[in-house]
Design a protein around this nucleic acid. Structure first.
Length: 523
RNA sequence: GCCGACGUAGCUCAGUGGUAGAGCACUUCCUUGGUAAGGAAGAGGUCACGGGUUCAAGUCCCGUCGUUGGCUCCA
């Protein structure tokens, strides 16, 4: 057998016998490194991109290789994914007959979606015994064993086990690329990779239990999702829990109550916040700050009413899209007119634009309003002040010529960044929300407009050096967006600011301006 | 909306079938020149709401409302 050449991240090249594993290579450097190696990142000439592998998987050809430890995000992911298998093993042992969905690693820990046997309901009360079982199983020092399986055999295995979810997952997989992983008495359909042995998992904490629809589809069965986290050292778990406790103290709902900023009343209605005097003062200061920033950025204030004729929203297209799932129209006593509580300010601003003829010289026009809007959010969605049924948007609409879109978009980014910086949001991501390529029917408007807007958003975001993430399928139905996502005290992500391109409303409202060529055209 | 949990004094919570409790806050009085001060007394609760089981329900069961962890949704 010919030796293989392994290139390490520092550029050094070492020779190993063919079939050496990541662990062998780690050991050749130091025993400590071997102990800490969780998985490896490997790139051979035959691979299109680097892959993360088990540290125990034999390497057959020359490769660039990186040993992944707890300090690498991918190493952590491997660790947590393996912990999810350990969780599943514990569940299967404690509650035989449980069916398993999927169990991935997430940003902070991992989860497993399961369907306990009929009559068994898992709640926080079961956490203790599950954690104990996981700890016991981890101490049995089981290897994670990778096994390539023929599809037919895989189907047989899960048919016999009665695990319809795994069978459904198998349907989407091609024969020849199906692998099982086994540790102890538990075997799972899994692409991997995994850590070498369960003994690395030293500290385990189940965090919460929740319902989660199978494959994220609310029409399908709801499984039980167990969230948990695990660490290679007990002290890391302790630090994690302390950090979490500290974060909970900073939860805005807790502070809002303690500092007497806002409250809710069942009598007023859920999701409808009441601002207490101290909160109102705070809010006023914030609004004044924002108004100043808007004036400096060239915005003009406008004000629109809290209700609008249903026709307004039929024109905008929002009624067709949200009408049935919204607060229902208010009826006038005599004339059978219908009005909607204002769910957004856009259509009103369009009508303000339309109040007189516009010239290309007028553009861009920037209208800003602290517009209070009402939306019928699903009851399970309500959350403190971050998801409510009545709220005030710092909202603005810019009417501009096609050649001004990019510049204006960039200016809005500048404004958002200025405000975020001033308010101390140091860590945020800019999510480029684009169409779902698999579901084009969801969107209205012209293909060429969409394509252009999507392209321009990405260009501008890049020029501004934003920390962007592209999210397909997250666009609004009328246009792509740039969503600014911030995290709350306990690490949950929320959309705080959003910049949206809308070629649709100007069409629908028949907005126009007189161009340099004296022809009417749309902004 | 869905699955799970929770709902007791203004706040944080204890109380799992037998006369509603604690700490803080509040009221009155006393003590005390110093940033969560001490002492005494006091007031404050249809135990979310509505049914049911029981001799007896804060406690067990069902429903409703609300909150909450997620899922789905998010103009």
């Amino acid at each position: 057998m010919n030796p293989i050449q392994i290139t390490l991240p520092d550029g050094s090249v070492r020779e190993y016998p063919q079939g050496s594993t990541g662990l062998d290579i780690a050991q050749s450097i130091s025993d400590g490194l071997m102990r800490n190696t969780l998985s490896i990142k490997i790139k051979t000439q035959t691979m299109a991109a680097a892959e993360v592998w088990d540290a125990t998987r034999p390497i057959a050809e020359d490769a660039q290789l990186q040993l992944l430890t707890w300090n690498d995000p991918e190493g952590k992911a491997t660790f947590w994914h393996s912990s999810a298998h350990l969780l599943a093993e514990a569940i299967e042992s404690l509650y035989p007959g449980t069916k398993f969905g999927i169990g991935p690693a997430i940003e902070q820990g991992f989860y497993y979606d399961i369907e306990p046997p009929a009559g068994v309901v898992l709640s926080q009360e079961n956490f203790g015994e599950i954690e104990q079982k996981m700890t016991d199983l981890a101490r049995q020092k089981s290897d994670f064993v990778r096994q390539e399986v023929a599809k037919e055999e895989a189907i047989r295995y899960f048919t016999q086990k009665g695990d319809e979810y795994k069978l459904e997952l198998l349907e989407g997989l091609q024969d020849g690329q199906i692998t099982f992983y086994q540790q102890g008495n538990f075997t799972d359909l899994c692409r991997g990779p995994h850590i070498p042995n369960t003994d690395k998992i030293k500290a385990i904490k189940l965090l919460n239990v929740a319902g989660a629809y199978w494959r994220g589809d609310e029409k399908r069965k709801q499984l039980t999702r167990l969230y948990a986290i695990a660490f290679p050292q007990a002290k890391e778990l302790k630090a994690f829990l302390e950090m979490r406790a500290e974060a909970e103290k900073r939860d805005h709902r807790k502070l809002g109550k303690e500092l007497e900023l806002f409250t809710f009343s069942d009598k007023v209605g859920k999701g409808l916040p009441l601002w207490l005097p101290k909160g109102a003062i705070l809010r006023e200061r914030l609004e004044n700050f924002l108004k100043k920033a808007q004036v400096r950025a060239g915005y003009e204030p406008v004000i629109s009413p809290h209700i609008g004729s249903k026709e307004l929203y039929v024109t905008s297209g929002h009624y067709a899209k949200y009408g049935q799932d919204s607060f229902q129209p208010i009826h006038t006593p005599d004339d059978e007119e219908e009005y909607l509580l204002k769910p957004m300010n856009c259509p009103h601003h369009c009508e303000i634009y339309k109040s007189r003829p516009r010239s290309y010289r007028d553009l861009p026009m920037r209208y800003a309003e602290f517009g209070t809007v009402y939306r019928y959010e699903q009851s399970g969605e309500l959350h403190g002040l971050t998801r409510v049924r009545g709220f005030t948007q710092d909202d603005a609409h810019i009417f501009c010529r096609p050649d001004q879109v990019k510049t204006e978009f960039a200016r809005v980014i500048d404004l958002v960044q200025y405000v975020f910086t001033a308010l101390g949001f140091a860590e945020y991501t800019a999510q480029v929300s684009l169409r779902d390529p698999d579901n084009p029917a969801k969107y209205i408007g012209l293909e060429e407009d969409w394509a252009r807007a999507e392209r321009e958003i990405q260009e501008v975001a890049q020029e501004k050096g934003l920390n962007t993430v592209v999210a397909y399928g997250e666009a609004a139905f009328y246009g792509p967006k740039l969503d600014f996502m911030v995290k709350d005290a306990i690490g949950r992500k929320w959309q705080l600011g959003t910049i949206q391109v809308d070629y649709n409303l100007p069409h629908r409202f028949e907005l126009e301006y007189v161009g340099a060529d004296n022809q009417n055209t749309g902004p």
